[in-house]
Design a protein around this nucleic acid. Structure first.
Lengths: 229, 229
DNA sequence: CGATCGCTTGATTCCGATCAACAGGAGTGG
DNA sequence: CCACTCCTGTTGATCGGAATCAAGCGATCG
């Protein structure tokens, strides 16, 4: 399971360009994680940590995708975030995880002792700043998500989701969806059938095309943007 | 429009007992704000800052209530948070506000230069830690909000909202609502009529009572909790 | 090949949005 | 004080759209 890589360098630390592109600006922290952490491979659908477990580690996605979610009593599941390569997750203020995290696809993830990072932050103001920036970025992501959930219509929500993804992993106009329709549904607060239907509807409107169910091509971004803010 | 009060008194500065149990640990920051900041009175429905404006200040509610929100193109408004006495808002990572803030009721608010706080944080690790904790608490609040927005039913959302409020300002079982039905609707992603209807429905179910439209008495918390997680 | 899983599509039901009217205060000015 | 309006909240009726139940379809895998 463990593949502790010696982690050569990580090129040069780009001089802290915050926000935007995820990996930049977190470099000394990011580099520290790569040095101190262990590389672990998780297979699809495996739980990385559960709700309520003590938050002893910090995680950074190297490859694959992870979802953070909460299980509700009625069996429903609320997906609060998707974590893509380069992103850090598992950061908690309290001592326990308020969410669970699961690998959506086979993923390799760097795992670091939280205490080690916090100790580092206590000594190094730059690390502390980056930790804070990271949290704030999470906040921003969550605000975007909330905005999407605020929409009443299904088309608006799906459109918002697609644009959000396009911003994060834009290979031109094509998006590769790592998550299932059910994941999307739980992320958007919709039924899986509604997600599916809305997708095909957008395709019929010539707004997108679906070469396969997991690949989306944005044909008309303007039309998508018109649906949300 | 501004009434920069010379800040005579306002009774005594309540010795900063912030939120829930996490009251400890935010005091030195809170105290610093009270010392460095100016007390300003805002009248009902006045904008405190607008979306896109530069985020030069940090705010702490002394009395009254503030809403953070975003205006959408279609005229809809998404309320992302309500800020109650003792709470801090306006904290941004970037240099600009991503949301606007408006006073829901006449409010007095402590306003501090953001730079002053950040400078303080750079020197004082404890202040930095508190700043981070504060951001993380905001994150937690937003997660709760997202959970509520994830519910498909109106009853579930309203129930979640009421429980959330009860946790924050519990005078026994009675909640005093500082915000209008429209504010609640925009917070929950519902139509105002639906909020109103759901309230009366909950009253008919003997789950709550509504002495007036702005006062809610929780008669059956268990029933409310049964509706959400 | 059968089996399971993920996705789509169809038919129906139900619930929330919308349009519309109305009720109760609060404030204003006569 | 009353008459007036404005504002907020409630209630009713209708309509549309999303949830739900149900079936079918196409992959991938043992």
């Amino acid at each position: 399971m463990f593949i502790r890589t010696a982690t050569t360098a990580m090129a040069a630390r780009t001089p802290s360009r915050p926000l935007t592109g995820s990996s930049q600006g977190v470099d000394s922290l990011s580099a520290a994680m790569e040095l101190m952490g262990a590389r672990i491979a998780y297979v699809r659908n495996i739980e990385i940590y559960g709700e309520g477990e003590s938050a002893d580690y910090l995680y950074k996605v190297v490859s694959g995708t992870v979802r953070s979610c909460k299980l509700l009593d009625d069996g429903r599941r609320q997906v609060t975030a998707f974590h893509m390569p380069g992103e850090i997750f598992g950061l908690e203020v309290g001592d326990n995880h308020s969410l669970s995290a699961e690998a959506i696809a086979d993923s390799t993830i760097i795992v670091v002792k939280r205490n080690a990072i916090l100790a580092l932050a206590a000594r190094d103001a730059e690390i502390a700043r980056q930790l804070w920036t990271l949290t704030a970025r999470e906040l921003q992501r969550m605000q975007d998500h909330m905005l999407i959930l605020g929409y009443t219509g299904a088309k608006e929500r799906v459109a918002g989701f697609l644009l959000q993804l396009a911003k994060r992993c834009s290979d031109g106009n094509e998006i590769k969806l790592p998550m299932s329709r059910q994941d999307i549904a739980d992320y958007l607060g919709l039924a899986i059938e509604t997600v599916s239907r809305t997708m095909t509807q957008l395709e019929n409107d010539a707004t997108i095309t679906l070469p396969t169910s997991r690949r989306v091509v944005l044909r008309n971004r303007a039309a998508l943007k018109r649906l949300n803010a």
